[in-house]
Design a protein around this nucleic acid. Sequence first.
DNA 1: GTCTATACAAAGATAGAC
DNA 2: GTCTATCTTTGTATAGAC
Lengths: 221, 221
Amino acid sequence: MTLPAPAMRGQILAAAARLFGRQGYANTTLRQIAQAAGIRAGSIYYHFEGKDEIAACVLDAGIAAVTDAVQQRLQALPADADMRARLAAAVEGHLWGMLQCGEFTAAHIRIYRYVSEAARQRHRAIRSAYTRLWDDLLRQAADAGMLRTDVPVPMVRQFLVGALNWPVDWYDPRRGGFDQLSAQITGLVLDGMLSRPVRPMRAARPAPPRRARAERLELAR
Amino acid sequence: MTLPAPAMRGQILAAAARLFGRQGYANTTLRQIAQAAGIRAGSIYYHFEGKDEIAACVLDAGIAAVTDAVQQRLQALPADADMRARLAAAVEGHLWGMLQCGEFTAAHIRIYRYVSEAARQRHRAIRSAYTRLWDDLLRQAADAGMLRTDVPVPMVRQFLVGALNWPVDWYDPRRGGFDQLSAQITGLVLDGMLSRPVRPMRAARPAPPRRARAERLELAR
DNA sequence: GTCTATACAAAGATAGAC
DNA sequence: GTCTATCTTTGTATAGAC
């Protein structure tokens, strides 16, 4: 009962993502990936050129997951949503794509620096697009006077996206669900860790309606 | 002109830390480390049991750098410093230890997950001590009513330390010195990324006096 | 203390049968 | 499409000369 080729390709990528995320790139062997996918090492080369191509595909899928989730949440907002709501939606989308949508994003975060330059190059375009998505959003916030002015936008983006990536290391869905985590992280990045007597402390925004994938609008670019 | 043994040990560790930080653990070979240290691969085994021991030592040194820097700044504070000043000092200390004090901390951040369980075990105690340092500080802040109450202290610590670690990926000392970066990051983590019309916006705290190492007090534990 | 030489294991990748 | 078998390279680690 051999799988059709495209399905097996997906199997291999899924297995690779899980192993990359847990063990790192160099520590994961093609033999392990093959075993997890239910085939032998040699068979991988029917589906991929080699380890590099697998890495590039995993990286692409990782960014795709967060990009989708962020855009989905942004576009589900009412047209008159203010910048704070937009930023919160984007943060929540990033967390969602990262924590729920799979092991691809975790793998991305962990292996990006260590794959071959060739694999990184192959993946570069899709990664830059995600960077630009955040830069645009933050730029709008800055123009609206919502952002602190002592930190340049690219640095806010680097700090923010970096900070958002850490929960993959310690998030445990068994205590406190995703919505709670999301509200906590959003509060931390938007308002900081100090208590703020003045703050309205508006409770967690209502969970945004989750649209079917086919329903969301096309990418802006 | 062979070096005395302890000096060569240091050379090897420094070379290993640099390479680990840049390439990751599994991608760095003993041959590379040896070459960077000016010896041959076989000679490493006169100084270390193997790659594992090198890893454990690099990890230890990385935590030691930030621990020292954080405690130094905390103890340099005036006795009546408020919690905000204490938190800011600790943040600045972490950044200083991480960015200025060397490649050991960068290496720590990058390889911790990927070294052998044996090496991690060897290093565990010193790492837990640093975790406890932050937990104690944040606990004090929480007791003083300074911390937001919707996020438990251990989670604040995980998020905070994680977020503080990212600048190793992108900090460039050539544009904006360390003091500026430190003030920016401190602002981001304490007050968040949004502008805050009400906020006093007290300009960067005056740089804390930098004490000689011998002058600082002993560890609390 | 460091060298050369090498043992030994494991990795990525290929060839050709089925 | 997947298998088995194997090539080639490279890594950690050891042995013994100097």
